[in-house]
Design a protein around this nucleic acid. Structure first.
Lengths: 257, 257
DNA sequence: GAGTGGTCTAGACCACTTT
DNA sequence: AAGTGGTCTAGACCACTCG
Protein backbone atom coordinates (compact mmCIF):
# COMPACT_ATOMS: atom_id res chain seq x y z
CA UNK A 1 0.00 0.00 0.00
CA UNK A 2 2.53 2.59 -1.18
CA UNK A 3 1.35 6.15 -0.80
CA UNK A 4 2.64 8.97 -2.96
CA UNK A 5 5.01 11.39 -1.22
CA UNK A 6 3.76 14.39 0.66
CA UNK A 7 4.25 18.02 -0.23
CA UNK A 8 6.05 19.33 2.79
CA UNK A 9 6.09 22.90 1.52
CA UNK A 10 2.38 23.09 0.92
CA UNK A 11 0.12 25.18 3.10
CA UNK A 12 -2.10 22.11 3.25
CA UNK A 13 -1.42 20.32 6.54
CA UNK A 14 0.37 17.00 6.34
CA UNK A 15 -2.34 15.14 8.23
CA UNK A 16 -4.87 16.46 5.79
CA UNK A 17 -2.83 15.37 2.77
CA UNK A 18 -2.64 11.90 4.30
CA UNK A 19 -6.34 11.86 5.09
CA UNK A 20 -7.18 12.82 1.52
CA UNK A 21 -4.97 10.08 0.09
CA UNK A 22 -6.65 7.48 2.24
CA UNK A 23 -10.07 8.89 1.45
CA UNK A 24 -9.37 8.62 -2.22
CA UNK A 25 -8.42 4.98 -1.82
CA UNK A 26 -11.62 4.30 0.07
CA UNK A 27 -13.75 6.11 -2.48
CA UNK A 28 -12.04 4.43 -5.41
CA UNK A 29 -12.69 1.05 -3.88
CA UNK A 30 -9.00 0.24 -3.48
CA UNK A 31 -9.82 -0.05 0.21
CA UNK A 32 -13.09 -1.87 0.75
CA UNK A 33 -15.45 -2.07 3.69
CA UNK A 34 -14.02 -4.11 6.53
CA UNK A 35 -10.45 -3.93 5.25
CA UNK A 36 -7.75 -2.41 7.42
CA UNK A 37 -6.25 0.92 6.49
CA UNK A 38 -2.51 1.40 7.06
CA UNK A 39 -1.65 1.52 10.74
CA UNK A 40 -0.30 4.60 12.47
CA UNK A 41 3.16 3.07 12.54
CA UNK A 42 3.07 2.18 8.86
CA UNK A 43 2.02 5.65 7.82
CA UNK A 44 4.56 7.18 10.14
CA UNK A 45 7.38 5.06 8.73
CA UNK A 46 6.42 5.14 5.06
CA UNK A 47 5.68 8.85 4.83
CA UNK A 48 8.27 10.04 7.30
CA UNK A 49 5.87 11.84 9.60
CA UNK A 50 5.55 11.56 13.32
CA UNK A 51 3.14 9.07 14.70
CA UNK A 52 0.94 11.83 16.10
CA UNK A 53 0.50 13.25 12.62
CA UNK A 54 -0.39 9.87 11.18
CA UNK A 55 -2.78 9.43 14.07
CA UNK A 56 -4.44 12.75 13.37
CA UNK A 57 -5.10 11.69 9.81
CA UNK A 58 -6.67 8.42 10.91
CA UNK A 59 -8.63 10.10 13.68
CA UNK A 60 -10.18 12.54 11.26
CA UNK A 61 -11.30 9.69 9.03
CA UNK A 62 -12.95 8.01 12.00
CA UNK A 63 -14.63 11.26 13.03
CA UNK A 64 -16.09 11.54 9.56
CA UNK A 65 -17.43 8.03 9.75
CA UNK A 66 -15.32 6.55 6.97
CA UNK A 67 -13.43 4.23 9.28
CA UNK A 68 -13.55 2.82 12.78
CA UNK A 69 -10.78 1.83 15.14
CA UNK A 70 -10.40 -1.16 17.41
CA UNK A 71 -7.75 -1.04 20.05
CA UNK A 72 -5.13 -3.68 19.56
CA UNK A 73 -6.48 -4.64 16.16
CA UNK A 74 -6.35 -1.76 13.77
CA UNK A 75 -8.38 0.78 11.85
CA UNK A 76 -10.89 -0.49 9.32
CA UNK A 77 -12.97 0.90 6.51
CA UNK A 78 -16.61 1.24 7.45
CA UNK A 79 -19.06 -0.50 5.18
CA UNK A 80 -21.56 2.29 5.62
CA UNK A 81 -22.17 4.28 2.48
CA UNK A 82 -21.53 7.95 2.94
CA UNK A 83 -22.01 9.67 -0.37
CA UNK A 84 -25.78 9.55 -0.13
CA UNK A 85 -28.06 12.49 -0.05
CA UNK A 86 -29.00 12.68 3.56
CA UNK A 87 -30.64 15.78 4.69
CA UNK A 88 -28.25 18.39 5.95
CA UNK A 89 -28.55 22.06 6.58
CA UNK A 90 -29.18 22.88 2.97
CA UNK A 91 -31.17 25.49 1.18
CA UNK A 92 -33.91 24.28 -1.10
CA UNK A 93 -31.71 25.33 -4.00
CA UNK A 94 -28.80 23.23 -2.80
CA UNK A 95 -30.95 20.28 -1.92
CA UNK A 96 -32.70 20.12 -5.26
CA UNK A 97 -29.48 20.50 -7.19
CA UNK A 98 -28.01 17.67 -5.14
CA UNK A 99 -30.97 15.54 -6.11
CA UNK A 100 -30.54 16.45 -9.73
CA UNK A 101 -33.59 18.64 -10.00
CA UNK A 102 -33.89 22.18 -11.29
CA UNK A 103 -35.00 24.47 -8.49
CA UNK A 104 -37.07 27.58 -8.95
CA UNK A 105 -39.10 29.81 -6.69
CA UNK A 106 -42.19 31.92 -7.01
CA UNK A 107 -42.23 34.75 -4.52
CA UNK A 108 -45.57 35.29 -2.81
CA UNK A 109 -44.44 38.00 -0.43
CA UNK A 110 -41.19 39.70 0.60
CA UNK A 111 -41.43 42.34 3.27
CA UNK A 112 -40.16 43.68 6.57
CA UNK A 113 -42.62 43.13 9.40
CA UNK A 114 -42.68 43.14 13.20
CA UNK A 115 -42.05 39.71 14.72
CA UNK A 116 -44.99 37.78 16.12
CA UNK A 117 -44.49 35.94 19.37
CA UNK A 118 -43.55 32.56 17.94
CA UNK A 119 -41.13 34.12 15.44
CA UNK A 120 -39.55 36.32 18.09
CA UNK A 121 -39.06 33.38 20.42
CA UNK A 122 -37.46 31.24 17.74
CA UNK A 123 -35.12 33.99 16.55
CA UNK A 124 -34.24 35.23 20.04
CA UNK A 125 -35.40 38.76 19.36
CA UNK A 126 -37.97 40.90 21.11
CA UNK A 127 -41.57 40.69 20.02
CA UNK A 128 -42.34 43.35 17.41
CA UNK A 129 -38.66 43.60 16.46
CA UNK A 130 -38.33 43.99 12.72
CA UNK A 131 -37.81 40.79 10.76
CA UNK A 132 -37.60 39.98 7.10
CA UNK A 133 -40.52 37.86 5.96
CA UNK A 134 -40.30 35.83 2.79
CA UNK A 135 -42.99 33.56 1.38
CA UNK A 136 -42.16 31.41 -1.58
CA UNK A 137 -43.54 28.52 -3.56
CA UNK A 138 -40.74 26.05 -4.12
CA UNK A 139 -40.65 24.47 -7.53
CA UNK A 140 -38.55 21.57 -8.82
CA UNK A 141 -38.55 20.70 -12.50
CA UNK A 142 -41.52 22.99 -12.99
CA UNK A 143 -43.58 21.11 -10.37
CA UNK A 144 -44.65 22.78 -7.14
CA UNK A 145 -43.08 21.01 -4.15
CA UNK A 146 -43.92 23.14 -1.17
CA UNK A 147 -44.69 26.49 0.33
CA UNK A 148 -42.14 28.12 2.63
CA UNK A 149 -42.46 31.03 4.97
CA UNK A 150 -39.08 32.28 6.24
CA UNK A 151 -38.24 34.87 8.88
CA UNK A 152 -34.86 36.46 9.53
CA UNK A 153 -33.81 39.09 12.07
CA UNK A 154 -33.35 42.31 10.12
CA UNK A 155 -30.57 43.27 12.49
CA UNK A 156 -28.38 40.37 11.37
CA UNK A 157 -28.63 41.19 7.70
CA UNK A 158 -29.20 44.92 7.24
CA UNK A 159 -29.63 45.79 3.61
CA UNK A 160 -30.63 42.27 2.67
CA UNK A 161 -34.12 43.46 1.90
CA UNK A 162 -32.68 45.79 -0.71
CA UNK A 163 -29.80 43.67 -1.98
CA UNK A 164 -31.37 40.22 -2.20
CA UNK A 165 -33.20 38.89 -5.20
CA UNK A 166 -35.81 36.63 -3.60
CA UNK A 167 -35.84 34.40 -6.68
CA UNK A 168 -32.32 33.26 -5.82
CA UNK A 169 -30.75 31.28 -3.01
CA UNK A 170 -31.15 32.92 0.37
CA UNK A 171 -28.36 30.87 1.88
CA UNK A 172 -25.95 31.97 -0.79
CA UNK A 173 -26.84 35.60 -0.20
CA UNK A 174 -26.33 35.24 3.54
CA UNK A 175 -22.95 33.67 2.98
CA UNK A 176 -21.73 36.09 0.35
CA UNK A 177 -23.10 39.33 1.79
CA UNK A 178 -22.61 38.75 5.50
CA UNK A 179 -20.38 35.73 5.89
CA UNK A 180 -23.25 34.01 7.68
CA UNK A 181 -22.95 30.26 7.46
CA UNK A 182 -25.76 28.14 8.81
CA UNK A 183 -24.29 24.97 10.22
CA UNK A 184 -27.00 23.46 12.39
CA UNK A 185 -30.78 23.45 12.32
CA UNK A 186 -33.45 22.05 14.55
CA UNK A 187 -36.68 20.97 12.98
CA UNK A 188 -40.00 19.45 13.87
CA UNK A 189 -41.72 17.43 11.17
CA UNK A 190 -45.42 16.68 11.26
CA UNK A 191 -47.65 14.92 8.80
CA UNK A 192 -51.03 16.34 7.99
CA UNK A 193 -53.59 17.00 5.31
CA UNK A 194 -53.55 19.87 2.85
CA UNK A 195 -56.00 22.66 3.62
CA UNK A 196 -57.90 24.53 0.94
CA UNK A 197 -55.35 27.30 0.48
CA UNK A 198 -52.30 25.04 0.53
CA UNK A 199 -53.97 22.65 -1.86
CA UNK A 200 -54.49 25.47 -4.32
CA UNK A 201 -50.91 26.68 -4.12
CA UNK A 202 -49.48 23.18 -4.36
CA UNK A 203 -51.95 22.07 -7.02
CA UNK A 204 -53.18 19.06 -5.11
CA UNK A 205 -56.62 18.17 -3.91
CA UNK A 206 -57.66 19.21 -0.47
CA UNK A 207 -56.94 16.52 2.09
CA UNK A 208 -53.84 15.25 0.33
CA UNK A 209 -51.02 14.17 2.65
CA UNK A 210 -48.39 16.83 3.35
CA UNK A 211 -45.34 17.36 5.51
CA UNK A 212 -45.31 20.29 7.87
CA UNK A 213 -41.84 21.57 8.73
CA UNK A 214 -40.92 23.99 11.46
CA UNK A 215 -37.23 24.75 11.35
CA UNK A 216 -34.78 27.08 13.03
CA UNK A 217 -31.26 27.41 11.66
CA UNK A 218 -28.24 28.57 13.60
CA UNK A 219 -24.71 29.78 13.05
CA UNK A 220 -21.83 28.24 14.95
CA UNK A 221 -22.23 30.51 17.95
CA UNK A 222 -25.81 29.39 18.43
CA UNK A 223 -27.34 32.61 17.18
CA UNK A 224 -30.56 31.74 15.32
CA UNK A 225 -30.69 33.24 11.84
CA UNK A 226 -33.68 31.76 10.09
CA UNK A 227 -37.05 30.48 11.20
CA UNK A 228 -39.08 28.66 8.58
CA UNK A 229 -42.49 27.10 8.50
CA UNK A 230 -43.27 25.12 5.40
CA UNK A 231 -45.73 22.72 3.86
CA UNK A 232 -44.51 20.15 1.36
CA UNK A 233 -46.35 17.74 -0.87
CA UNK A 234 -45.89 14.25 0.51
CA UNK A 235 -46.32 12.69 -2.89
CA UNK A 236 -43.26 14.46 -4.26
CA UNK A 237 -41.09 14.84 -1.24
CA UNK A 238 -39.51 12.21 0.99
CA UNK A 239 -37.30 12.70 3.97
CA UNK A 240 -34.01 10.83 4.00
CA UNK A 241 -32.30 10.88 7.37
CA UNK A 242 -29.19 9.40 8.81
CA UNK A 243 -29.53 8.84 12.51
CA UNK A 244 -26.60 8.26 14.80
CA UNK A 245 -26.27 7.07 18.32
CA UNK A 246 -25.23 10.07 20.32
CA UNK A 247 -22.22 9.77 22.55
CA UNK A 248 -23.94 12.10 25.02
CA UNK A 249 -22.64 10.72 28.27
CA UNK A 250 -21.22 7.58 26.81
CA UNK A 251 -18.45 9.48 25.18
CA UNK A 252 -16.33 8.02 27.94
CA UNK A 253 -13.39 6.11 26.53
CA UNK A 254 -14.70 2.61 26.35
CA UNK A 255 -12.97 0.26 28.70
CA UNK A 256 -13.89 -3.40 28.98
CA UNK A 257 -16.70 -4.46 26.61
CA UNK B 1 -11.66 29.85 36.72
CA UNK B 2 -9.88 27.50 39.10
CA UNK B 3 -10.37 23.87 38.24
CA UNK B 4 -10.11 21.11 40.83
CA UNK B 5 -6.99 18.97 40.63
CA UNK B 6 -6.82 15.90 38.45
CA UNK B 7 -6.54 12.32 39.56
CA UNK B 8 -3.35 11.23 37.94
CA UNK B 9 -3.63 7.66 39.13
CA UNK B 10 -7.10 7.13 37.73
CA UNK B 11 -7.72 4.91 34.76
CA UNK B 12 -9.79 7.78 33.40
CA UNK B 13 -7.68 9.70 30.88
CA UNK B 14 -6.57 13.16 31.89
CA UNK B 15 -8.07 14.81 28.84
CA UNK B 16 -11.38 13.20 29.66
CA UNK B 17 -11.28 14.41 33.26
CA UNK B 18 -10.64 17.91 31.97
CA UNK B 19 -13.39 17.64 29.40
CA UNK B 20 -15.87 16.52 32.04
CA UNK B 21 -14.96 19.41 34.35
CA UNK B 22 -15.53 21.91 31.57
CA UNK B 23 -18.71 20.18 30.51
CA UNK B 24 -20.04 20.42 34.02
CA UNK B 25 -19.35 24.13 34.07
CA UNK B 26 -21.17 24.55 30.78
CA UNK B 27 -24.14 22.50 31.91
CA UNK B 28 -24.35 24.25 35.25
CA UNK B 29 -24.40 27.59 33.52
CA UNK B 30 -21.14 28.75 35.06
CA UNK B 31 -19.95 29.06 31.48
CA UNK B 32 -22.63 30.59 29.27
CA UNK B 33 -23.14 30.63 25.54
CA UNK B 34 -20.63 32.88 23.81
CA UNK B 35 -18.24 32.98 26.74
CA UNK B 36 -14.67 31.76 26.32
CA UNK B 37 -13.57 28.55 27.96
CA UNK B 38 -10.06 28.44 29.40
CA UNK B 39 -7.41 28.49 26.70
CA UNK B 40 -5.10 25.59 25.99
CA UNK B 41 -2.25 27.43 27.68
CA UNK B 42 -4.29 28.21 30.76
CA UNK B 43 -5.42 24.63 31.19
CA UNK B 44 -1.91 23.40 30.56
CA UNK B 45 -0.44 25.73 33.17
CA UNK B 46 -3.12 25.47 35.82
CA UNK B 47 -3.55 21.71 35.73
CA UNK B 48 0.02 20.82 34.97
CA UNK B 49 -0.68 18.87 31.81
CA UNK B 50 0.96 19.21 28.46
CA UNK B 51 -0.63 21.52 25.97
CA UNK B 52 -1.53 18.60 23.71
CA UNK B 53 -3.55 17.04 26.49
CA UNK B 54 -5.37 20.30 27.18
CA UNK B 55 -5.96 20.59 23.47
CA UNK B 56 -7.42 17.12 23.29
CA UNK B 57 -9.93 18.03 25.98
CA UNK B 58 -11.00 21.17 24.14
CA UNK B 59 -11.09 19.39 20.80
CA UNK B 60 -13.44 16.76 22.16
CA UNK B 61 -15.80 19.46 23.42
CA UNK B 62 -15.82 21.03 19.97
CA UNK B 63 -16.43 17.68 18.31
CA UNK B 64 -19.44 17.17 20.54
CA UNK B 65 -20.78 20.57 19.59
CA UNK B 66 -20.56 22.15 23.02
CA UNK B 67 -17.96 24.70 21.96
CA UNK B 68 -16.38 26.16 18.86
CA UNK B 69 -12.89 27.47 18.24
CA UNK B 70 -11.68 30.53 16.42
CA UNK B 71 -8.05 30.74 15.53
CA UNK B 72 -6.30 33.58 17.23
CA UNK B 73 -9.29 34.34 19.42
CA UNK B 74 -10.16 31.40 21.61
CA UNK B 75 -12.66 28.66 22.27
CA UNK B 76 -16.21 29.63 23.12
CA UNK B 77 -19.30 27.98 24.48
CA UNK B 78 -21.88 27.32 21.80
CA UNK B 79 -25.30 28.79 22.45
CA UNK B 80 -26.97 25.81 20.84
CA UNK B 81 -28.94 23.69 23.26
CA UNK B 82 -27.83 20.13 23.29
CA UNK B 83 -29.78 18.26 25.91
CA UNK B 84 -32.86 18.04 23.74
CA UNK B 85 -34.52 14.90 22.58
CA UNK B 86 -33.41 14.73 19.00
CA UNK B 87 -33.95 11.52 17.26
CA UNK B 88 -31.04 9.16 17.48
CA UNK B 89 -30.65 5.49 16.89
CA UNK B 90 -32.98 4.53 19.66
CA UNK B 91 -35.37 1.71 20.22
CA UNK B 92 -39.01 2.58 20.70
CA UNK B 93 -38.57 1.68 24.35
CA UNK B 94 -35.65 4.06 24.79
CA UNK B 95 -37.29 6.84 22.83
CA UNK B 96 -40.53 6.75 24.77
CA UNK B 97 -38.78 6.62 28.11
CA UNK B 98 -36.70 9.61 27.05
CA UNK B 99 -39.92 11.43 26.28
CA UNK B 100 -41.37 10.49 29.63
CA UNK B 101 -43.90 8.01 28.31
CA UNK B 102 -44.50 4.45 29.35
CA UNK B 103 -43.78 2.14 26.42
CA UNK B 104 -45.50 -1.16 25.81
CA UNK B 105 -45.83 -3.51 22.88
CA UNK B 106 -48.41 -5.90 21.60
CA UNK B 107 -46.90 -8.66 19.54
CA UNK B 108 -48.79 -9.46 16.36
CA UNK B 109 -46.33 -12.00 15.00
CA UNK B 110 -42.90 -13.37 15.86
CA UNK B 111 -41.46 -15.96 13.54
CA UNK B 112 -38.54 -17.09 11.41
CA UNK B 113 -39.21 -16.71 7.71
CA UNK B 114 -37.27 -16.63 4.42
CA UNK B 115 -36.26 -13.12 3.37
CA UNK B 116 -38.21 -11.44 0.59
CA UNK B 117 -36.26 -9.47 -1.99
CA UNK B 118 -36.49 -6.06 -0.34
CA UNK B 119 -35.61 -7.44 3.08
CA UNK B 120 -32.69 -9.42 1.71
CA UNK B 121 -31.33 -6.39 -0.10
CA UNK B 122 -31.56 -4.18 2.96
CA UNK B 123 -29.95 -6.72 5.26
CA UNK B 124 -27.27 -7.79 2.77
CA UNK B 125 -28.27 -11.42 2.86
CA UNK B 126 -29.35 -13.77 0.09
CA UNK B 127 -32.99 -13.93 -0.87
CA UNK B 128 -34.76 -16.71 1.03
CA UNK B 129 -32.11 -16.64 3.76
CA UNK B 130 -33.74 -17.08 7.15
CA UNK B 131 -34.61 -13.90 8.98
CA UNK B 132 -36.43 -13.16 12.20
CA UNK B 133 -39.69 -11.34 11.59
CA UNK B 134 -41.35 -9.39 14.35
CA UNK B 135 -44.56 -7.41 14.08
CA UNK B 136 -45.61 -5.26 16.99
CA UNK B 137 -48.07 -2.56 17.87
CA UNK B 138 -46.21 0.15 19.76
CA UNK B 139 -48.06 1.65 22.67
CA UNK B 140 -47.21 4.68 24.78
CA UNK B 141 -49.22 5.44 27.89
CA UNK B 142 -51.78 2.88 26.81
CA UNK B 143 -52.33 4.64 23.47
CA UNK B 144 -51.40 2.96 20.19
CA UNK B 145 -48.67 4.95 18.43
CA UNK B 146 -47.63 2.85 15.51
CA UNK B 147 -47.19 -0.55 13.90
CA UNK B 148 -43.68 -1.87 13.32
CA UNK B 149 -42.46 -4.75 11.24
CA UNK B 150 -38.83 -5.64 11.95
CA UNK B 151 -36.51 -8.08 10.21
CA UNK B 152 -33.14 -9.34 11.47
CA UNK B 153 -30.70 -11.80 9.91
CA UNK B 154 -31.04 -15.00 11.91
CA UNK B 155 -27.35 -15.64 11.34
CA UNK B 156 -26.34 -12.59 13.37
CA UNK B 157 -28.38 -13.53 16.38
CA UNK B 158 -28.76 -17.30 16.58
CA UNK B 159 -30.93 -18.30 19.49
CA UNK B 160 -32.59 -14.91 19.65
CA UNK B 161 -35.84 -16.44 18.55
CA UNK B 162 -35.79 -18.70 21.59
CA UNK B 163 -34.19 -16.33 24.09
CA UNK B 164 -35.95 -13.07 23.36
CA UNK B 165 -39.22 -11.99 24.95
CA UNK B 166 -40.79 -9.92 22.15
CA UNK B 167 -42.62 -7.78 24.69
CA UNK B 168 -39.28 -6.31 25.77
CA UNK B 169 -36.66 -4.13 24.14
CA UNK B 170 -35.09 -5.71 21.11
CA UNK B 171 -32.11 -3.36 21.22
CA UNK B 172 -31.37 -4.31 24.79
CA UNK B 173 -31.49 -7.99 23.92
CA UNK B 174 -29.15 -7.50 20.97
CA UNK B 175 -26.71 -5.64 23.17
CA UNK B 176 -26.81 -8.02 26.12
CA UNK B 177 -26.93 -11.31 24.26
CA UNK B 178 -24.63 -10.60 21.34
CA UNK B 179 -22.81 -7.37 22.08
CA UNK B 180 -24.48 -5.89 19.01
CA UNK B 181 -24.70 -2.12 19.26
CA UNK B 182 -26.57 -0.24 16.58
CA UNK B 183 -24.87 3.08 16.06
CA UNK B 184 -26.17 4.38 12.77
CA UNK B 185 -29.43 4.06 10.85
CA UNK B 186 -30.66 5.27 7.51
CA UNK B 187 -34.32 6.00 7.15
CA UNK B 188 -36.81 7.23 4.62
CA UNK B 189 -39.86 9.02 5.97
CA UNK B 190 -43.00 9.43 3.96
CA UNK B 191 -46.33 10.95 4.84
CA UNK B 192 -49.51 9.19 3.80
CA UNK B 193 -53.01 8.24 4.77
CA UNK B 194 -54.01 5.32 6.95
CA UNK B 195 -55.45 2.34 5.10
CA UNK B 196 -58.29 0.24 6.43
CA UNK B 197 -56.12 -2.31 8.22
CA UNK B 198 -53.70 0.22 9.70
CA UNK B 199 -56.59 2.38 10.82
CA UNK B 200 -58.06 -0.52 12.73
CA UNK B 201 -54.78 -1.40 14.45
CA UNK B 202 -54.02 2.21 15.33
CA UNK B 203 -57.59 3.01 16.26
CA UNK B 204 -57.90 5.96 13.93
CA UNK B 205 -60.30 6.56 11.10
CA UNK B 206 -59.30 5.51 7.62
CA UNK B 207 -57.59 8.35 5.76
CA UNK B 208 -55.96 9.83 8.85
CA UNK B 209 -52.47 11.22 8.31
CA UNK B 210 -49.64 8.82 9.15
CA UNK B 211 -45.88 8.62 8.91
CA UNK B 212 -44.34 5.77 6.98
CA UNK B 213 -40.84 4.83 8.09
CA UNK B 214 -38.40 2.57 6.32
CA UNK B 215 -35.28 2.16 8.36
CA UNK B 216 -32.12 0.10 8.26
CA UNK B 217 -29.82 0.05 11.27
CA UNK B 218 -26.13 -0.78 11.22
CA UNK B 219 -23.33 -1.66 13.56
CA UNK B 220 -20.02 0.17 13.37
CA UNK B 221 -18.60 -2.04 10.67
CA UNK B 222 -21.48 -1.24 8.38
CA UNK B 223 -23.15 -4.63 8.73
CA UNK B 224 -26.93 -4.12 8.62
CA UNK B 225 -28.70 -5.69 11.57
CA UNK B 226 -32.29 -4.54 11.46
CA UNK B 227 -34.69 -3.54 8.72
CA UNK B 228 -37.94 -1.99 9.86
CA UNK B 229 -41.03 -0.74 8.10
CA UNK B 230 -43.48 1.07 10.30
CA UNK B 231 -46.59 3.21 10.27
CA UNK B 232 -47.09 5.82 12.96
CA UNK B 233 -50.03 8.00 13.84
CA UNK B 234 -49.23 11.56 12.81
CA UNK B 235 -51.52 12.99 15.46
CA UNK B 236 -49.47 11.48 18.25
CA UNK B 237 -46.01 11.35 16.82
CA UNK B 238 -43.76 14.16 15.68
CA UNK B 239 -40.27 13.96 14.30
CA UNK B 240 -37.64 16.11 15.95
CA UNK B 241 -34.43 16.32 13.96
CA UNK B 242 -31.17 18.12 14.32
CA UNK B 243 -29.57 18.72 10.97
CA UNK B 244 -25.94 19.61 10.53
CA UNK B 245 -23.93 20.92 7.66
CA UNK B 246 -21.76 18.06 6.57
CA UNK B 247 -18.10 18.66 6.21
CA UNK B 248 -18.07 16.23 3.28
CA UNK B 249 -15.43 17.81 1.13
CA UNK B 250 -15.23 21.06 3.00
CA UNK B 251 -13.56 19.39 5.90
CA UNK B 252 -10.48 21.11 4.59
CA UNK B 253 -8.86 23.27 7.26
CA UNK B 254 -10.41 26.64 6.65
CA UNK B 255 -7.91 29.21 5.49
CA UNK B 256 -8.89 32.74 4.73
CA UNK B 257 -12.46 33.81 5.56
C1' DG C 1 3.82 42.18 20.92
C1' DA C 2 1.10 39.12 23.53
C1' DG C 3 -2.18 35.65 23.35
C1' DT C 4 -4.70 32.27 20.76
C1' DG C 5 -5.55 27.98 18.26
C1' DG C 6 -3.38 24.78 14.32
C1' DT C 7 0.23 21.85 13.14
C1' DC C 8 4.23 18.94 13.96
C1' DT C 9 8.07 16.29 16.19
C1' DA C 10 10.35 12.36 18.69
C1' DG C 11 10.05 10.20 22.00
C1' DA C 12 7.36 7.34 26.04
C1' DC C 13 4.22 3.99 28.55
C1' DC C 14 -0.03 1.56 28.49
C1' DA C 15 -3.93 -1.83 27.34
C1' DC C 16 -5.33 -4.70 24.17
C1' DT C 17 -5.31 -8.42 20.36
C1' DT C 18 -3.20 -11.93 17.88
C1' DT C 19 0.26 -15.34 16.98
C1' DA D 1 6.49 -11.37 21.66
C1' DA D 2 4.96 -8.37 18.23
C1' DG D 3 1.76 -5.19 16.56
C1' DT D 4 -2.06 -2.14 17.31
C1' DG D 5 -4.47 2.01 18.91
C1' DG D 6 -4.95 5.28 23.33
C1' DT D 7 -2.74 8.50 26.13
C1' DC D 8 0.83 11.79 27.42
C1' DT D 9 5.02 14.80 27.45
C1' DA D 10 7.87 18.94 26.40
C1' DG D 11 9.11 21.17 23.35
C1' DA D 12 8.67 23.85 18.42
C1' DC D 13 6.99 27.02 14.59
C1' DC D 14 3.13 29.05 12.38
C1' DA D 15 -1.08 32.08 11.25
C1' DC D 16 -4.19 34.67 13.17
C1' DT D 17 -6.56 38.38 16.28
C1' DC D 18 -6.41 42.17 19.13
C1' DG D 19 -4.95 46.12 21.60
Amino acid sequence: MALPPLDRHSVVPLYYQIQQRLLQQIRSGALKGGEPVPSEQEISAQLGVSRMTARQALKSLCDLGFTYSQRGKGTFVSGIKLEKDFRQVLSFTEEMKARGSKPRSKVLAFEVIPAADDVAEALHVRTQEKVISLQRIRIANALPMGVEHSYLPLQLCPGLFEAFDPQTSLYRALSELYGIRLIVADEVVEAGLAGAEEAKLLKVSKGSPVFLFTRTSYVQSGQPVEYVRSVYRADRYKIVNRLTRLHSELLAPVRLV
